[in-house]
């Protein structure tokens, strides 16, 4: 399995560490095991898929776009990822 460069260099976990192992577990039907590897992916992956769906939607969805694509929401999203990054390494 590919190694995380950040983990190899620093010894700390990156926000995505365990993502592949978790995906592997999910694909084998073992949700509990996936949760142990990277619980964050259960929240953040659906968010990512929502953004892709809105982007690819044929309807303009102006209100939804204005909220989801606003800098405040985007920076909050990045903030949440950074917080998870810190918390998991405590």
């Amino acid at each position: 399995m590919p190694q995380c460069v950040f983990h190899n260099l620093t010894g700390y976990d990156c926000p995505g560490c365990g993502f592949q192992r978790a995906l592997y577990a999910v694909l084998h039907g073992d949700i509990a095991r996936a949760w142990k590897f990277n619980p964050f992916m259960f929240f953040i992956v659906p968010v990512g898929l929502c953004y892709l769906a809105v982007e690819l939607s044929r309807r303009p969805l102006p209100k939804l776009r204005r909220i989801m694509f606003s800098p405040a929401v985007l920076y909050s999203l990045i903030g949440v990822i950074v917080i998870w990054w810190i918390v998991r390494n405590l």
């Binding site: 926000p15 995505g16 953040i44 992956v45 968010v47 990512g48 898929l49 953004y51 892709l52 809105v54 982007e55 690819l56 989801m68 694509f69 800098p71 985007l74 999203l77 990045i78």
Partner: peptide, 30 residues
């Protein structure tokens, strides 16, 4: 702008590329 793509790619594909995509998109709007 390519915000939807960037967020998706940042989370599911290639974090650094997606993050830069978000930043450039927001700067473009500004």
């Amino acid at each position: 702008t390519f915000i939807g793509w960037s967020v998706f790619l940042m989370i599911c594909c290639f974090p650094i590329g997606g993050l830069l995509g978000i930043i450039f998109s927001v700067m473009s709007g500004n």
